[in-house]
């Protein structure tokens, strides 16, 4: 599915934005043991906009997020900050973040991140095709003799 492997920055974002149902689909039958460094916690992030889209930053409003951090028995640390209120989603994202850094990474990239990325891309393309169908084609009506 993916041509190049994702960086940690990219996969953390991808996991954060994915719906829980989709993370569940790709969940291993026997997830590895881990220890919480920060149990999943629901909170908010303040979203900032810019005056006139490019000027001074201002506080637009908050968005709900859930964050978590954990450590695998091998010592690898996984973090998550995911959109919405989802304790289980944050747990899964943090565990995947840790596993993706281990030797299991390349296999997980293909098995989990590939489908997630494809699903996100498909949703974007579906929206873009609908938007394109509503693009206005102007034409000039014949004008009177001048």
């Amino acid at each position: 599915m993916t041509s190049a492997s994702l960086t940690r920055r990219d996969w953390m974002g991808l996991l954060a934005r994915a719906p829980l149902a989709r993370l569940d689909t790709h969940w291993p039958d026997e997830p590895p043991a881990f220890m919480w460094l920060r149990a999943p916690e629901i909170g908010t992030m303040m979203v900032q906009g810019r005056a006139g889209a490019v000027g001074a930053a201002f506080n637009l409003g908050e968005v709900t997020v859930t964050r978590a951090a954990l450590r695998l028995s091998c010592g690898t640390v996984g973090h998550a900050m995911v959109q919405g209120r989802g304790l289980r989603k944050a747990e899964r994202a943090a565990l995947l973040d840790a596993l993706l850094q281990t030797s299991a990474g390349p296999e997980l990239q293909a098995r989990v991140l590939g489908p997630l990325q494809a699903a996100e891309r498909a949703a974007q393309e579906a929206r873009a095709r609908r938007a394109a169908a509503t693009k206005v084609d102007f034409f000039t009506l014949a004008r009177g003799e001048g």
Binding site: G43, T44, M45, V47, Q48, G49, R50, A57, L60, R67
Partner: peptide, 9 residues
Amino acid sequence: PRFGASAPL
């Protein structure tokens, strides 16, 4: 709790 602020959109 508020964890922080985003980068400007």
